[in-house]
Design a protein around this nucleic acid. Structure first.
Length: 605
RNA sequence: GGGGGCGUAGCUCAAUUGGUUAGAGUGCCACCCUGUCACGGUGGAUGUUGCGGGUUCGAGUCCCGUCGCUCCCGCCA
């Protein structure tokens, strides 16, 4: 007989009755009836009920039959009588009658319960992550993640992709997020950077002729956390392909995503191909570049109806170059007055000066603003929104950018309050035609709006002739239920176009050579056209697992302050380590000290 | 860097809006119980109300500060 087990805790069936077996696992729950004791023994695979006669010698060996102690039982598989069968358990038709017991790992009192649903505080859960991971939900999520990754590897390998590793210690890149730096011992004063993404490496692999690359790639960005954004590190399904157009990338990824989501979720999943929405259109209709298409509401432009309107608040906005956008919500005329007041308060909380509305009900308009408007103007709104009796329209007026932003938030809030979002579907879309450049609002500089390595859609011609702000890039996002899964692009593989593109964003040729010398050199030695994408693994698993927070799909996550409470990272380094790295620590002044110094001349040194 | 929320027993939460000795469930400890499966029953222990200060006859409750966790804004090519 095996040292620890002959079976796992979910595989014993009625047909095993009479067998002498050995099981090892955690004590999940104890039901002590005095004359007979039941223990649910749990392992990764499931639960098996063990029956103990307290007269057995081994019963006294364990002072406390405390849950989560790891034990090994040897005994006979026994069929349960019909009335004692537990249909909730895989192994519910049998039980193990214990003859011997060995303690493998005793547990002290737990900081929180494993078997019972109990909401422990996040910090405690993170400190005792190994315990939290024993709980069914989290355990399942991590297994789901493993399966998702293995599914992706299998599929992509089948269609000609090769998986490569790229360096973790690399150099800092000038664009993008804050880098994590690693000091160099051999080169005093110099630093490696952890990759924000393997962007340049994957492009160089294409130049090297590998044709199709993928990697479940760790990415490191020193930026602040959100519920759907881990601080520090996260994983991308990094993909790059040679000799492809945007359509080729879309086809591979949308088929993979549709199949992946259908395989691992019971929700209804969009079939490939996914719909495509140009950036400017999604901003206009949804006020965001990651629209949740489960939300049926959208914005329409009704600026024309207010140009000469007697409703001065809006008319003056329009005269000053602003716009008016409307959101039609069908069939909610019955909402109480408070609903409209609350929505207006919400709009104001996200930056609106106010919000108007018209309720069409019983063949007339109810609204604080219609008395200022002509019949013709009101009818033009009705026409624009294809209004039927019972419908309501909300109006926002401001500069276009602001209206889109506020309208996007109002659109989402309306859907949430009115429960318009179908929780049982995954709706995907591509956002295409991102602008190549945008204006830095502070400096007025033209800057790259996304990836500087994207190919401008008109190539060199557009760079030379068009207003930079009108140039579109072969740059795209894939969005699922309002979550941005990934950005991608067809890359700029032409050195001449590259220099020009960087020049427009204010980079001298020398700077480009210095920062991207390796890549430029590669592009001058025969580079294939190529492009790719990099969907976030954590977000994919989060969506499939239906979790609101990334930490629920990561085995050992950071907290929001980018700390690992279990491993106690980050931590101070020893003096010896610092000396070897030629590093001196200059801590920020504490707040009290700062206050004490205020208004005083700096101390003479 | 900024804003919101939370912080009471190991854990989840309550405390009649400032009033006597801060409660309940769960966990923990002891005992009882031979068919439970979130077993049940009886009894018991457990609190610097995050920390520091203030107002008050009196503070878990109000005020100020601070720390921690979380959500959001900034940031995230």
């Amino acid at each position: 007989m095996h040292r620890y087990r002959t079976h796992n805790c979910s595989e014993l069936k009625k047909s095993d009755t009479g067998k002498k077996v050995k099981l090892s696992g955690w004590i999940h729950s104890v039901r002590d009836h005095g004359g007979i004791i039941f223990i649910d023994l749990r392992d990764h695979f499931g639960l098996t009920q063990v029956v103990i006669d307290p007269k057995r010698e081994f019963y006294k060996a364990l002072e406390h039959w405390r849950v989560e102690t790891v034990v090994c039982f040897t005994g006979e598989v026994t069929e349960r009588t019909p009335e004692t069968i537990n249909p909730k358990l895989e192994t519910g038709e049998i039980e193990l009658v214990a003859e011997e017991m060995e303690i493998l790992g005793e547990a002290i009192v737990l900081p929180f319960q494993i078997a019972k649903e109990e909401h422990a505080p996040e910090a405690t859960r993170l400190k005792y992550r190994f315990l939290d991971l024993r709980r069914e939900k989290l355990h399942k999520n991590i297994i789901l993640r493993s399966k998702v990754i293995s599914f992706i590897r299998k599929r992509l390998s089948e269609i000609g992709f090769n998986e490569f590793q790229t360096p973790i210690l690399t150099s800092s890149s000038p664009e993008g997020a804050r880098d994590y730096l690693v000091p160099s011992r051999l080169h005093p004063g110099k630093f490696y950077a952890l990759p924000q993404a393997p962007q340049q490496f994957k492009q160089l692999l294409m130049v090297a002729g590998f044709d199709r690359y993928f990697q479940i790639a760790p990415c490191f960005r020193d930026e602040d956390a959100r519920a759907d954004r881990s601080p520090g590190e996260f994983y991308q399904l990094d993909v790059e392909m040679s000799f492809v157009t945007q359509d080729d990338v879309f086809k591979i990824i949308e088929e993979l995503m549709a199949e992946l989501f259908k395989t691992f979720s019971d929700k209804k999943v969009d079939d490939a191909p996914f719909i495509r929405i140009p950036y400017r259109e999604t901003m206009r209709r949804f006020g965001t570049d990651k629209p949740d298409l489960r939300n049926p509401l959208e914005m329409i432009d009704v600026t024309a109806s207010f140009v000469n309107s007697g409703f001065n608040a809006f008319a003056s906005v329009v005269k000053n170059g602003g716009v008016v956008r409307a959101i039609k919500v069908p069939g909610i005329a019955g909402q109480p007055r408070k609903f409209y007041d609350d929505m207006i308060a919400f709009a104001q909380s996200v930056g609106a000066k106010g919000m108007a509305y018209i309720i069409w009900t019983g063949g007339e308009e109810k609204s604080p603003i219609v008395k200022f408007m002509s019949r013709q103007e009101i009818d033009s709104l009705k026409e624009a929104g294809k209004i039927q009796d019972g419908d309501v329209m909300f109006f926002l007026a401001d500069k276009e950018k602001k209206v889109m932003e506020i309208g996007g938030a109002v659109r989402t809030e309306l859907a949430v309050r009115l429960n318009l979002i179908d929780k049982n579907v995954f709706k995907f879309c591509w956002i295409t035609d991102f602008p190549m450049y945008e204006l830095d609002e502070e400096t007025g500089q033209t800057i790259f709006s996304h990836n500087p390595f994207s190919m401008p859609q008109g190539g060199m011609d557009d760079l030379l002739k068009k207003n930079p702000l009108d140039i579109l890039a072969f740059q795209y996002d894939i969005v699922c239920n309002g979550v941005e899964l990934s950005s991608g692009a067809i890359r700029n593989h032409r050195p001449d176009i590259m220099y020009k593109a960087f020049e427009i964003a204010g980079y001298a040729k020398e700077t480009v050579d210095e920062k991207f010398g390796g890549m430029i050199r590669a592009f001058m030695l025969g580079a294939p056209p190529h492009g790719g994408i990099a969907p976030g693994i954590d977000r994919i698993v989060m969506l499939i697992a239906d979790e609101p927070n990334l930490r629920e799909v990561i085995a050992f996550p950071f907290n929001q302050q980018a700390q690992d409470l279990m491993m106690n990272a980050p931590a101070e380094a020893t003096l010896k380590q610092l000396r070897e790295l030629h590093i001196k620590i200059a801590l920020p002044e504490k707040k009290e000290e700062k206050k004490a110094h205020e208004g005083q001349p700096p101390a003479a040194t």
